[in-house]
Each structure stands twice: as C-alpha cells, then as structure tokens.
Design a binder for these strands. Sequence first.
DNA 1: AAGCAGTGGTTCGATTATAGAACCAAGGAG
DNA 2: CTCCTTGGTTCTATAATCGAACCACTGCTT
Lengths: 262, 262
Amino acid sequence: MSSKTVDKALSILDAFTVETPTWGLRELSRQIDMNHTIVHRILTTFEDKGYLYCNPETKKYELGIKFIELNNVVEEHLNISSIIQPIMKEIALKTGESVVLTILDEEEGVFVKIVESEQKVRFAESVGKRSSLYIGASHKVILAYLPLEIQHNIVDEGVAHSAKHIKSKETFLGHLERVKEQGWCYSEGETFDDVAACSVPLFDNKHQILGSLSIAGPKYRLSQEQSEEKLPILQEHVKKLNAILGKVNFPSRRNFLTKKFI
Amino acid sequence: MSSKTVDKALSILDAFTVETPTWGLRELSRQIDMNHTIVHRILTTFEDKGYLYCNPETKKYELGIKFIELNNVVEEHLNISSIIQPIMKEIALKTGESVVLTILDEEEGVFVKIVESEQKVRFAESVGKRSSLYIGASHKVILAYLPLEIQHNIVDEGVAHSAKHIKSKETFLGHLERVKEQGWCYSEGETFDDVAACSVPLFDNKHQILGSLSIAGPKYRLSQEQSEEKLPILQEHVKKLNAILGKVNFPSRRNFLTKKFI
DNA sequence: AAGCAGTGGTTCGATTATAGAACCAAGGAG
DNA sequence: CTCCTTGGTTCTATAATCGAACCACTGCTT
C-alpha cells in the first residue's frame, strides 16, 4: 500500500523537467488534472522544505538547490566522483573523445556522468537523460546482458515504436547476441543524429550487468573502424573499473528483474 | 497551510545524506521518531515512483537515480553547464586552481559546481555542501552584499557558534565592509583546513547578489599575495559572466529577504 | 531446539488530514 | 468598467492516514 498524498506530490515533482522547468499554480493543476487547492498545498510544502523555489515576481515554481545536494548524495554513494570519474577522464584523455557513464535503472538506461573531450562537442546537457534500452550502443550493450525474456519485451517495445534501426525482432536479437559475444557495441546516429558511440559493459560483484561506459563523438571522427582502434583503451580501463566495482558492492538498480518473476 | 503527509515524506528524504546514505525501515523510523507503518508507506511510495531504491538483499533504502535527473533539470535551468561552466573551465585553466561556484539559497551558501584544476587536490566531493554565510571567502563575499540587518543576524549566529575566525562582531562587520569596497574576499583554512580561496561576487539583472565564484587551492600555493596575482583573471571573466547573468534573468534564491520584512 | 530480540511488512477500525466547491483580491486586456 | 485569469484562502463532508497489534523471518543465545 502506498500513500495517495505522497504519490500526488511526486507526480507534481515529475512535472518539472528540462522542457518545462517552471510552473504556475493554475497551469500545473490543469496539466496534471488536479484541483488547484491540493496542488497549492503540496507546492507550498515543497517550498517550505526547500525542495521548490517560488519566484516572488513571476509567482512560478521551480526546482530548488536541494536537488543539487541530493544529487551529490547519490553520486558519492555510487563512488562516481571518487572512483569512476577519474577513470573516465583518463579514457577521455587517451581517446580524445567524450566518455559517457550509463546506469541501468529499472528497465531503462540513464546517462549519469559525462566527461567531455577537449573537442567542442557538447554532451553535458544530456546528463540525466533516461531512455529505453533498445536504442543506442550504451543502452544496447546493457540489454545484451539481460535475460532473454526481458530482451524480448524491450525489443517488442522498440518494434511497437517502429524504431528505424530495428529491421526485425529476430535480426535485432541476433545483433544483441553478437554484442554479448564480442563484449562491446557500436552504433551511429541512434540516440543523437551525427553522433556515434562505442560501449562496453559494467558488472557488479555478482557479474550482473549494471551499466556501460562509452566513448562518443561525431560520426565523421568515430566510424566503426576508428572506434575499434580506440576500443582497447576503453576495454583496458573498464577492466580496472570492473575489478573495483566487483569489490565495492556498487548498488545496482535492477529490482525489476527479481520483482517480475516473483 | 501545508500538507502534513508530504511534510513527513520530505523529512524522511532529508535523512538520506552523504554521511548516512542508506536506511533500514526500523532504523529510520527510530531516528526521526515516527511510527514505522507510516515510514514504510512513504518509503514504498518513493520506491514506486523511482525516488528511492530498496536493495533487495539488505532491505535498505537509498536515493534513486531520479535525483541525478532532477539535478540536471536544475543545472540546465540555471544555465550552469551551458554558460557558467565553460567560463569556470577557462579560469581554472588560466589560474591553475580549482574554481568553485557558490549559490545563495535562502540564508545559506551552497557549492553548486566545482571545476577542478589539473593539480591533485580533490574538491568535487564538496559539491552540494551547504553552510552558513559567515565562514569561507566564497560565503563571506556573498554576505558582504546582503542588507546590514541580515549581516548582523548571521554574524551573531557565527559568534554564537564561537567561530574561531571571528574575533568580535564589530571587527567582522568591518571586514565585510572592506570586502564590499574592494569587491573580493580572501580566506585561509575556514571551510577546509589547509585550503585557501579568493572569491568575487555574482549579481543578477537587478544587481542583487546571487552567489560567488572562487578560486581555491592549498594554502602553500594560494597565499594572499599569490591569489591577488590571479585575481585579475578571475575578475575579468566574472565581469563577462555578470554581463550575461544580467541578461538571462538567473533565478536568484533570496526569498528570505522579501519574506522577512513583510 | 527453544526462546528471544531484532528485522521488514501487513491489517483494520478510530481518527484526522485532505479534497474541492466557493470564495477573495489583484492584475491585465478589451 | 467589465471580463477573464491569476495566486491564494476558507470550511466541512469525506476519504486517507495513523498506529497498536499482528505475522513471518532471521540470527543470536542459552
């Protein structure tokens, strides 16, 4: 049993996105189809607690600095800035490309950290981006190490959305099989047009997939051949990283696996 | 009027800190003195909504990847990665020291972004750190531009906490006055032992203080003389930044000012 | 192996916080 | 001035919450 009130409160929070970062009271209550009284009460509660900020001039609400603090709690707990980011920086330096850390969160992949190369291609704004596992090398390499049943479900979902890079369910599942065999995945223009990526898997201490590390750059600089040249650098560092992740008990987020089958 | 239930839910969230990032059910309900039933209901609601993750082995709860997403919404809205961070990188490159962005949030200062120098001094884990305005150059330079009444309150607070760098209220207020006159603040070993910093103020489009930008490094490398040599670089870039912030209408977080006096 | 103390989690009736229509006051737009 | 929309408040029927008592399980001690 879960709390109706808190559930509503979190639905309200969910409305604050990169696309719509500020909301007026009436506007928001219309959007989520709730009485404005309750939206008002919840918004002021968030504000009192420092979770939202209400601009006194526009009377519009936006997410508070609190979320920068909470983000840090998560990053520290996942050892991102202490362990993972230094390795990402090294890879970025040696390959000259941006490095992306993707984490499996329930049935989706989230870009959790991006270390940009010196070259002027901006990815940083994609941190926090969440998407389904059938699209992009960073996500597909994760999918390749998940149970077949999950793969079927997610590929079905991709087919239903008529993803242009999926020719047929069978060929795509075969592709995933090869990805798992070779231990890496390359893709071009799937998540972003003109961007290519090469990804390798990350595992926890029980050898379960928990995410991926990718190098990403513009297509013209990161063809399949070029990325295969840089692959050994990526693999070498990820080997180190996986050895560490196997010890520190990185908290993987894969409850959907256990829950689905109970 | 604010929602009792949501208020409780947020108090529960507040328990998840860098120091105590995971909680068991009973443990947490004892800590915040709430019946474990209600804590359980709220925790599962957060979990259902992806805000918390429950480790199926330890049965302990921790903050979810969701907060990385919400952090990004805030950072994008504040133009941090698009506008501020590039300028911070340039300053870090030219001065060779780490650069810290501090934002005034209600009556406290929060380290919002840190760009580290190549030198091996780690600050990144301090992102999200929140503290009172009487300590550290980054915070004091903000305080210096706040109304005198606020300065009095906060310095009183510092005296009450017997902060070792405050000799007397009067000399400290005089110090703040000089900081405001000269437009920058230097400090040594206040926020962290062995760390010195030099800070300049950031203003919004109505010339109200909204934060500060600092260079920070180990004392031995950043004496007052050395930091004054690097000050022009900092000032030059912050001048550019302030010109931009004056246009983009950076959402300042200073409601305590307006609210206090109504 | 029985007993105990600790977990996480659930049930259900009494209690209490919430929901939402109706209401202000204020600010544009015409 | 009127109309419309805004943020915000009031008040009571109603529905969600509270919390004692409960279960099942685990690990420790006797």
